[in-house]
Amino acid sequence: MIHAPARPALARRLPASAAMLVALAVRTLPVERWRMRARLALARSVTALPAADLAHVQGMYEAVVACQPWWWRGQIDCKERSLATVVAVALTGRRCHLVLGARALPAAFHAWVRTADGRHVGDDEAGGRDHPWTPIYTAP
């Protein structure tokens, strides 16, 4: 379960809210294949930007989690949070990588964000510390 952190500063709240709206717009696409293609296309579109450091990515991830809209009727999954983090970091002029992964026992899929130097943000959700995730795909 994700608990919302404290309300972030306005400089982080604006890109995080805009990025969450983009991620939720992708979620409303009617076919899952289209949703995944849109997520990967958005994640690949930020490759020309300079790399973000761990503190910046962690701060934007926490801002995205804090800016989840109350009016959204469905569940906001890790795919939306990680895509929103990539987009929010891109809106601030930096880049990070979207990572899709899985584990065998207990069988599950997960998405998180990786910095350019290989540090992970958001991979500790859903028991990630007890049962580590194996990265399957990393968007450049």
Rank of each mutant, 00 (worst) to 15 (best):
L21N: 15
E62T: 07
A90H: 00
W70C: 01
P69Y: 01
I136R: 10
R95L: 04
D123T: 01
A9N: 14
L105G: 10
V26S: 00
L14S: 11
T85N: 03
W72F: 15
L40N: 09
G101Q: 05
L98Q: 04
C67G: 02
V31T: 12
A116N: 01
R35K: 09
H3M: 06
L14W: 13
A102D: 05
R12M: 10
R12N: 09
A88F: 06
I76G: 12
G127F: 01
R73D: 09
L14M: 11
W133K: 03
R33W: 09
P30E: 12
V99M: 08
A4N: 15
L14C: 06
P30A: 13
G74V: 07
W71D: 12
L49A: 00
D124N: 08
P135I: 03
R119S: 06
G59S: 09
G122H: 07
V89A: 04
A43M: 04
A126L: 14
P135C: 08
W133D: 00
L54P: 03
Q58T: 08
M60L: 13
W70F: 10
V64T: 05
V113M: 09
R114I: 06
P140M: 05
T115R: 09
G59H: 01
A25Y: 01
A25N: 05
T92L: 11
L100P: 00
R37T: 10
F109V: 11
H110M: 01
C96V: 05
L40D: 11
R95G: 04
V99T: 08
L91D: 06
R95E: 03
A139V: 02
M36Y: 10
P106I: 07
A66M: 07
R81C: 04
A107W: 03
R37N: 12
S82Q: 05
M36T: 14
V31H: 13
T47S: 14
A63V: 03
A52R: 02
A104E: 13
Q68F: 06
R129M: 14
A102V: 09
A116E: 03
Q75C: 15
R44K: 00
R7T: 15
A41G: 11
H110W: 05
P69W: 00
A16S: 01
A9W: 13
G118N: 03
V89R: 02
W71S: 14
R13M: 10
V57S: 01
A51R: 11
A104D: 12
G127I: 02
L105E: 15
F109N: 08
D123S: 05
P8A: 05
V22N: 00
G127A: 04
V46F: 06
T47F: 09
G122A: 06
L100Q: 03
T138M: 07
V57Q: 02
D130L: 15
P5I: 13
P30W: 12
H97C: 14
M1D: 10
G128I: 08
I2Q: 13
G128H: 11
G128R: 10
M60V: 09
D77F: 10
E32P: 14
L91V: 06
V57P: 02
R129D: 14
I2L: 14
A66P: 08
A23W: 08
A11P: 03
Q58D: 10
V121M: 08
T115S: 11
M20D: 13
L91Y: 05
D130M: 14
R33T: 11
A4Q: 14
V64A: 04
P15L: 01
A139D: 00
S45P: 01
L54Q: 06
V99W: 05
L98F: 07
C67H: 02
L21H: 14
H56A: 15
A25G: 13
R44L: 01
S82N: 06
